[in-house]
């Protein structure tokens, strides 16, 4: 089996190689966060017929850098009555949770930091760590808004992991693997082989296309809820909870939450890309296919998903807590079960 990590090929499995493998996604996350913040600012501006930031650098492209510098310089406040240890630990745990998920993201044919067989399972398990961080932050702040935000956030995360998991399980059934690299490889050969269109197979797969397509949308909606984006941004619902679980945070600790949110956005977009949108495969068969093109396609597709998240954020109002639960448990969950059953049946009969 050929290696799935070009760093091992170049340097071998030593300490230096490990450090590079670990830090490559970190550099990527930092760079990506800057671009995503700029995209958020600019896209919201275009949707609202504004120009957005225009002063920092040409067309304001240095705005995210300025924002990061601003956050670094801000006073770091720890509330007097807070539980200091948990309060200070929470942002790191959240960021760790978001960052650890990058370990199994297949950026390219030739680069996945850890090519493990339980990749999808790992993403889900590690994603729940950020829920712990949110509770810690919300509870330790000793603020009623933070507490309510944290409570809402955890109930939301847990509810929406189930439809998301059902969507992923369906793909696992189709691909017979939980290894994200394997799943990506299975979808090669053109966009009609992507799992959003039923995956590779003969014309009989036409029966399964509506279900996989529906599951893509279900997973996208659930991922919006998991990353606390509009219309599911109730945990930090500005109009009633001020800023939700991170009301009391300032300066760099707030920036950690901020980064974690954007990193989480990318993780769910990357998972969506991997399992439904063909991962690092080119949409045109062998055309523009290869390790380097692979990372290009992967990042491009993930970015498109992130752009969709941003687009939705600036278009829709937000749900209420009970409506959010309604959508999660009574709409998405049954639908995802139906799709899962249908796909399982299809695989069984094939």
């Amino acid at each position: 089996m050929e290696s799935t990590n070009f760093v091992w090929d170049l340097m071998g499995r030593n300490l230096g190689g490990v450090l590079i493998v670990i830090s490559l996604p970190l550099f990527f996350v930092l760079l990506y966060a800057l671009i995503a913040i700029l995209a958020e600012l600019k896209i919201s501006a275009w949707i609202q017929e504004r120009l957005g930031p225009m002063r920092t650098g040409p067309w304001g492209i240095l705005q995210p850098v300025a924002e990061v510098i601003k956050l670094l310089q801000k006073e770091d406040i720890t509330p007097d009555q807070s539980s200091k240890l948990l309060y200070n630990l929470a942002p790191f745990i959240i960021f760790t949770g978001a960052y650890a998920a990058f370990a199994v993201i297949p950026f390219s044919e030739a680069f996945v930091p850890a090519d493990i067989n339980l990749g999808l399972f790992y993403v889900f398990a590690i994603g729940s760590i950020s829920a712990m961080g949110i509770v810690m932050g919300g509870w330790a702040s000793n603020n009623k808004y933070s507490l309510m935000g944290a409570m809402r956030s955890v109930s939301q995360l847990i509810s929406y992991e189930i439809p998301a998991a059902m969507a992923i399980l369906s793909v696992v059934v189709l691909a017979s693997s939980m290894n994200m690299q394997e799943i990506s490889r299975a979808q090669g050969g053109g966009f009609w082989n992507w799992y959003i269109f039923g995956g590779p197979g003969t014309w009989t797969k036409i029966w399964v296309v509506p279900f996989t397509f529906g599951l893509t949308i279900i997973y996208f909606i659930a991922s919006l809820a998991e990353t606390n984006r509009v219309p599911f941004d109730i945990p930090e619902g500005e109009s009633e909870l001020v800023a939700g679980f991170h009301t009391e945070y300032s300066g760099m600790k707030f920036a950690m939450f901020f980064f974690a949110e954007y990193a989480n956005m990318f993780v769910v977009a990357a998972v969506l890309t991997t399992i439904f949108l063909g991962g690092w495969n080119s949409p045109f068969g062998d055309f523009m296919q290869g390790p380097w093109w692979g990372s290009f396609w992967f990042i491009l597709k993930s970015f498109v998903v992130v752009l969709f998240q941003i687009w939705i954020r600036w278009t829709l109002p937000r749900f209420r807590v009970d409506q959010l639960m309604y959508v999660g448990w009574k709409v998405l969950l049954p639908l995802s079960f139906v799709c899962f059953m249908a796909i399982s049946l299809f695989v069984m009969l094939k």
Binding site: Q48, R50, E238, S239, R318
Partner: peptide, 16 residues
């Protein structure tokens, strides 16, 4: 009112 419901865009349309 839209802003209270979480819709930011109509807010700026109206302010424009």
């Amino acid at each position: 009112f839209g802003l209270d419901a979480g819709a930011f865009t109509p807010f700026l349309f109206y302010f424009r």
